[in-house]
Amino acid sequence: MRIALNNPEIPQNTGGVLRLCACFGVPLDIIEPCGFQMTDAKLKRAGMDYIAKAHMTVHKDWDAFRAARPGRLVLATTKASVPIYDFAFQTGDILIFGSESSGAPDYVHAAADARIRIPMRPNIRSFNLAVSAGIILSEALRQTGGLPSSDVGV
């Protein structure tokens, strides 16, 4: 299981996803261009010391990402008809998220093997990127038996 962020724009969201990945032991792929520098102070503040505990790979573009990461792409999008709770996740899935302002471009939709959505009330645009990643990753790991076992909790 992996998370991939395609063209993220907000460093605080990416920092939050880095922290999420560190906590669950899931690798993160960041596909450039980004709306910030990877050295951005806001990214570091949101990711805190968890950045050092996360496994992150930065790819220069979509083609470099796909060359490095073949596998089943599961796109999180509000345009999907399949709710995450009705989808069968697999251990090798790459959960991909588009940019905060525009979502995933057409070429990502075309490459996706599946499209999923988080159920929510009507007339609400979307969840925050980091929140979406947390909800979907948690369900995917639950389904595949990949949740870390620990006596330490929130």
Rank of each mutant, 00 (worst) to 15 (best):
M1W: 04
I3V: 15
I3Q: 07
P8I: 03
E9M: 12
P11E: 04
P11A: 05
P11Q: 05
Q12W: 00
Q12S: 06
Q12M: 01
N13F: 06
T14N: 04
T14F: 07
G16I: 01
G16W: 01
G16T: 05
R19V: 04
L20T: 14
L20N: 07
L20Q: 07
C21Y: 06
C21R: 06
A22R: 06
F24A: 15
P27A: 07
P27R: 04
E32H: 11
E32M: 13
E32G: 13
G35S: 05
F36Y: 13
M38T: 13
T39E: 15
A41I: 01
K42S: 11
K42G: 00
K42Q: 12
K44A: 14
R45K: 15
R45N: 04
R45Q: 12
G47S: 14
M48D: 08
Y50W: 12
I51V: 14
A52Y: 02
H55I: 00
M56F: 00
M56N: 00
T57P: 00
T57L: 03
V58Y: 07
V58G: 02
K60Y: 00
D61G: 10
D61N: 15
D61C: 10
W62C: 07
W62G: 09
D63R: 13
F65M: 06
R66N: 05
A67L: 13
A68E: 05
R69K: 14
P70W: 14
R72V: 11
L73K: 08
L73A: 04
L73M: 14
V74W: 04
T78G: 12
K79C: 00
K79I: 00
K79T: 03
A80S: 10
D86Y: 01
F87R: 01
A88T: 14
A88R: 14
F89R: 07
Q90F: 00
Q90H: 14
T91K: 15
G92W: 04
I94E: 02
F97K: 11
F97T: 06
G98I: 11
G98D: 09
G98M: 10
S99W: 05
E100Q: 13
S101Q: 11
G103R: 13
D106N: 10
D106A: 15
V108C: 03
A112D: 06
A112N: 10
A112F: 06
D113T: 07
A114D: 13
R115W: 01
I116M: 09
I116L: 10
I118R: 01
R121H: 12
P122L: 02
P122N: 09
P122E: 13
P122T: 06
P122Q: 09
R125C: 08
R125E: 15
S126Q: 11
S126M: 05
F127C: 08
N128V: 07
N128I: 07
N128S: 07
N128M: 06
A130E: 03
S132E: 02
S132F: 10
S132K: 08
A133I: 06
A133D: 08
I135L: 14
I135P: 08
I136D: 02
I136M: 13
L137E: 05
L137K: 08
S138C: 09
L141C: 04
L141I: 02
T144F: 02
T144E: 03
T144Y: 03
G145D: 02
L147C: 10
S149D: 11
S149M: 11
S149I: 12
S150T: 15
S150P: 01
D151S: 12
D151P: 00
V152C: 02
G153N: 10
